[in-house]
Design a protein around this nucleic acid. Structure first.
Lengths: 248, 248
DNA sequence: TTTCAATGTGTAAAAAGCACACAATAATAT
DNA sequence: ATATTATTGTGTGCTTTTTACACATTGAAA
């Protein structure tokens, strides 16, 4: 196994540019929601720093498809909510880059196309890539130094997510199939980093007419049992397409 | 002159990739406002179709700087309002591409980073590039077929501009130093493709507190002379930075 | 059975958005 | 000169949305 890995790796560094476009990469900020906190999926390079999951664009592959492939490989999920948000093109963005093979295509300058993804935390099966030996969730507030400009990319992804909250509903991609109103509110509060009024939040969200209240209540916690809700997939999709007019 | 041009051109096709990154291009939708219409600056390839002004990224140049350079070359202007809005990465986006030199780097697949720019129409000095023989303003509604996916890029730029109207003021970059309220309103109406109520528009815009009314009025037209206004640069810049909360 | 903390629901006040009317005026026509 | 006309400047009441806040209900725990 180890031999195969290192053969693969050597080949990748040596002539990866036969498969992938040189100078172009894709980086993904994958967000999940767990225990009332927004999490981001990070990789740890073998004997190196943490970074965002990323990869390269095949010669006959759209950039969107590259992102989809990368996400599939790291999370095991298809059909992920995905948004391209910015392309990072500073020639010094990979300061400190040091690939063993100095002549490798990998040692060249890369422009990176940033995507953010929203996934259901519990469904993700984190898997490291060929360059890394760890792949785990981090609380977004506990993320320290990341490689290159990845911290900046992550923060811009978060900003974009916040802005998107103004014209897209987001819960469908981050919450389990059924959830309570307080849970949905916590999600919004976490993304916005702002406390919202419980009653007004409920009114606003229900006014979108994309939620369906179930007969079932969530029991187990102390205190009064809240109702479960689920998204009306059809109305939700419609709302996504035509855009909402919220303003948080 | 002709010889020098063709030498340059030949060199550009042959070994332009010594100067520029392969596979990466920048395309710009440059918008201006003239005679109550939104205009876009287009180039016409020698014996070919119309296209957006574009170019390539030098090996030691940020993508933003490439866009700034391209804009400078086409318009003669520095300090242009510039927004990166999307990166176009479909492998078939340049369908029908046919560069004479089949082995040229130019014949390879390109991923294009889209920017839109807002400029003061009257200050622009349109200049064709090495590949084109015409560079002129087009009414955005009269733009027909463009090369590759450039029409789609232009439309997405317009969409992005419309969205940006919700959190940025825009007039400063598109209007002359002093202008009347009806002129500013026409600009908004043109971008939004929607008629607005004169009185409510004025109230909303003035409430932003980024305008300064001058003593002077615009004379010459028939009927009552409207006041001139100008943007308070300081407040305008502040509003740009911190973002507005409009919703058109 | 009482207590506690969280949920479900409603209502009044404030703010923002919207529709609309009338007076003032600069050029033009008479 | 004078009247005409289209456009600008300004205000006001109505409607809708947002915001602030109160009270009854309820499931688990003490």
């Amino acid at each position: 196994m180890k031999t195969m890995d290192s053969t693969l790796l050597k080949d990748f560094f040596h002539r990866g540019d036969r498969v992938f476009l040189p100078h172009v990469s894709v980086d993904c900020a994958i967000f999940g929601f767990h225990e009332n906190q927004l999490k981001v999926l990070l990789l740890k390079w073998k004997d190196g720093p943490w970074c965002l999951p990323g990869g390269f664009v095949k010669h006959v592959e759209s950039v969107d498809d590259s992102a989809i492939r990368i996400l599939q490989e790291r999370t095991g999920l298809d059909n992920i909510y995905l948004q391209q948000f910015h392309t990072f093109g500073d020639p010094n963005r990979e300061k400190g880059k040091k690939i063993p093979d100095t002549k490798s295509w990998m040692n060249k300058r890369f422009i990176s196309i940033g995507y953010y993804a929203l996934v259901e935390f519990s469904k993700v099966n984190p898997k490291p890539d060929i360059l890394s030996d760890d792949c785990t969730w981090w609380d977004i507030h506990k993320v320290q130094e990341l490689i290159y400009d990845h911290k900046q990319i992550m923060l811009k992804a978060l900003d974009s997510l916040r802005l998107d909250l103004n014209d897209h509903p987001v819960g469908y991609n981050l919450l389990p199939g059924k959830f309570t109103m307080p849970e949905l509110q916590k999600l919004y509060e976490t993304i916005l980093e702002e406390k919202l009024d419980r009653r007004n939040f409920q009114k606003r969200i229900l006014a979108l007419e994309i939620l369906e209240r179930l007969k079932e209540r969530k029991t187990g916690g102390a205190h009064k049992a809240p109702f479960f809700y689920r998204f009306d997939k059809k109305r939700y999709t419609k709302a996504l397409k035509q855009g909402l007019k919220l303003s948080w």
